[in-house]
Design a protein around this nucleic acid. Structure first.
Length: 301
RNA sequence: ACGGGUGUAGCUCAGUCGGUAGAGCACUGGUCUCCAAAACCAGGUGUCGGGCGUUCGAGUCGCUCCUCCCGUG
């Protein structure tokens, strides 16, 4: 068996529902390695059905990392993921020169590959204070505040997008410095090789798989899982496809059937968004999920 | 069979006095260095059921055929 010359992180990526999990099992078996999940929602132990976590048999047979490892009451973000994965990789590479990371969280993948600027976590109290101000005084007020505190970023940012404006303000208030001065966008050098494998297939086929998987999630008890989380629906982590639509149903804003249709539509939309992001990444080597042998051969060369 | 209604974008529907059709969702594309399965931006994709007629001009008016629905038989 050929193995790549140096320590290699294989990244298996693609839109939701494309077939990453099945292929990750094949690749992990072939290289006798472990799997790092790169999924910003499979992290949370309370959200298993709606995030299509691999089944227990697979999780038992092949060690997986960052699956059900955190609670929805913990705060987590891409920067933490970068730190955690880079730390873990040092341990894993000591045992095996090839490690597989699989998932579709675009920002998290980039954080691992290129690094992310070192910015502080935001204190929840400050976050809610700023969010309240936005609610009470409106977006124009927040824009004016940003223009005053960080005129450079004010000129760059999408002024239509409250989330961007509010986050910049959070950083300004937390650090006492402008957000723009801390946004260096420096690409970090990694001491291992990165091999990106992208999966894609016909759009209609992908949509069929997505629709079918949502039906399966419902059969597997997604409604009950969401019902348990309903009391915490205000948490940002639960502003997630598959859960927020069911919360609308619990609120009486739509029927169950309508909620399921919305989950399907929003999942398709998410898949498109992922493809838009991945499309511009020239490092990705694209394959059809059925090309198992070709992919393994490609990795081995 | 007769009477009434209906037919416009993939779906649900709007369309004034006759002036070559528009909204939501779907769909498609894009932005994005940290709450990212989030947030934001852009794009109308059409044999107006078919045909004939009136008119300078018909989604709109008339006739006719067809579809589906309701009622009566």
């Amino acid at each position: 068996m050929n193995t790549p010359p140096i320590q290699t992180l294989i990244i298996l990526l693609g839109p939701t529902g494309i077939g990453k999990t099945a292929l990750s099992e094949v690749i992990a078996d072939h290289f006798q390695t472990e799997i790092i999940s790169c999924d910003s929602r499979q992290l949370f132990s309370e959200m298993s059905i709606g995030t299509a976590v691999p089944d227990d048999q697979l999780l038992k047979r092949i060690p997986h990392h960052f699956i059900r490892s955190h609670s929805i009451f913990d705060s987590y973000n891409a920067a933490r993921f970068e730190t955690d994965v880079i730390d873990l990789l040092q341990t894993l590479f000591a045992k095996n020169p090839v490690i597989l990371m699989t998932g579709g969280s675009m920002l998290y993948i980039d954080a691992v590959c290129k690094g992310i600027d070192d910015l502080p976590d935001i204190d929840p109290e400050l976050r809610s204070t700023i969010s309240e101000r936005h609610k009470n005084f409106g977006i124009d007020h927040m824009r004016a505040e940003l223009k005053l505190l960080d005129p450079v970023y004010y000129r760059e940012v999408d002024l239509q997008n409250p989330v961007r404006i509010l986050h910049a303000l959070e950083i300004c208030y937390t650090t006492g410095r402008t957000f723009s001065s801390q946004r260096t966008k420096t690409v970090k050098e990694r001491n291992f090789r990165i091999l990106k494998i992208g999966l894609n297939r016909d759009r209609s086929e992908l949509y069929d798989r997505i629709n079918q998987r949502v039906d399966e999630m419902m059969q597997n008890g997604l409604e009950q899982e969401a019902r348990k989380l309903y009391p915490f629906k205000h948490l940002n982590t639960l502003n997630t496809v598959g859960y927020r639509e069911l919360f609308e149903y619990f609120d009486g804003d739509c029927t169950l059937a309508q909620a399921v249709e919305k989950i399907k539509a929003n999942t398709r939309k998410y898949a498109r968004k992922q493809l838009t992001w991945f499309r511009k990444d020239t490092e990705i080597n694209w394959f059809h999920p059925d090309q198992e042998q070709e992919i393994i051969q490609f990795i081995s060369n």
